[in-house]
């Protein structure tokens, strides 16, 4: 008799392989083989995973249409099934899959929309942390401001794109209504953060992406500003700091003179 490992392995292999009609010894009440009964499991697995992927990428689904999405998702789930029972994490590789999926080559922004949706789910389920208030930041003496480093909110995510992905995503989520979009008008870089219950999503101002990325890497304020200005001379430091505080992007800041001291954020 087959070992349990081989038995379940044969069952598992047949789930994603339609050329295997039925592993031997799987029977109905009369003891006879029943492909139709095995097909219930095959269908449950594939449909269940396609639905799980759809729940994680609702905007991608709306852009390509449900029928197309299902067909594309079937290929993805068979080639990269989830490796964890936590299904809201399913689809880490979906954006890369889309980028290489020939039938959507005429929707060049689709992979970036998938990246955005993936980032949205990561922000949604990220650890809780209280954002830093403007008052806490204002308490830092002016002569120490240049050397400040920031701790960014654990839910903060950045997505870079050469397409207007935030505009397109908003048209294809919730009550959004699709309208013509000029794909050549320039890209939108997107910042996502969930300071409380709601995921906040915004386009970053010029140089803002590079600025936040530098801060995230632990660069002090002046260094991050230089990097941002190199990326885009229109970079406006005070506007960026104000917007980032307002959206809840920081949870802590540290001055160079007092590296051990943490100015804890207080919930407003």
């Amino acid at each position: 008799m087959q070992s349990l490992a081989d038995r379940l392995g044969g069952f598992a292999d047949a789930l994603f392989d339609p050329t295997i009609v039925l592993p031997p010894g799987l029977v109905g009440p009369d003891g006879e083989p029943s492909p139709r009964r095995f097909a219930v499991y095959r269908n449950n697995v594939v449909v269940g995973l396609v639905e799980a992927l759809k729940a994680n990428f609702p905007s991608v689904c709306r852009i390509v249409g449900e029928e197309f999405f299902d067909a594309m998702a079937r290929i993805f789930v068979a080639s990269e099934p989830p490796t964890s029972p936590i299904l809201f994490e399913f689809g880490i590789g979906f954006a890369n899959f889309i980028a290489g999926f020939e039938p959507v080559a005429d929707v060049p922004y689709l992979a970036d929309i998938a990246r955005l949706e993936r980032a949205w789910h990561e922000a949604y389920h990220a650890p809780e942390a209280n954002p830093l208030t403007a008052a806490a930041l204002a308490a830092i003496p002016e002569n120490q401001a240049a050397g400040i480093t920031f701790s960014l909110h654990p839910s903060l995510r950045l997505i870079w794109s050469r397409f207007p992905i935030l505009t397109i995503w908003r048209m294809n989520i919730g009550d959004g209504v699709p309208a013509p979009v000029d794909l050549t008008a320039g890209g939108e870089d997107v910042l996502l953060v969930r300071p409380a219950a709601k995921v906040e999503v915004c386009a970053t101002p010029p140089g803002g992406y590079e600025f936040v990325e530098a801060l995230q890497q632990g660069q002090p304020l002046t260094e991050a500003m230089k990097i941002a200005l190199r990326a885009d001379p229109r970079f406006d430091l005070s506007r960026n700091i104000r917007d980032l505080i307002a959206i809840g992007a920081f949870i802590d800041c540290h001055t160079a003179n007092e590296p051990g001291r943490l100015t804890r954020g207080v919930r407003a």
């Binding site: 995973l49 029972p85 299904l87």
Partner: peptide, 22 residues
């Protein structure tokens, strides 16, 4: 039931043979 094999998670409650090994 079982729902994993190798590294894959199938998101379904798959049946178990009723043998002494299982």
């Amino acid at each position: 039931a079982w729902s994993t094999h190798d590294t894959a998670y199938f998101d379904d409650l798959l049946p178990v043979p009723y043998t002494t090994e299982s």
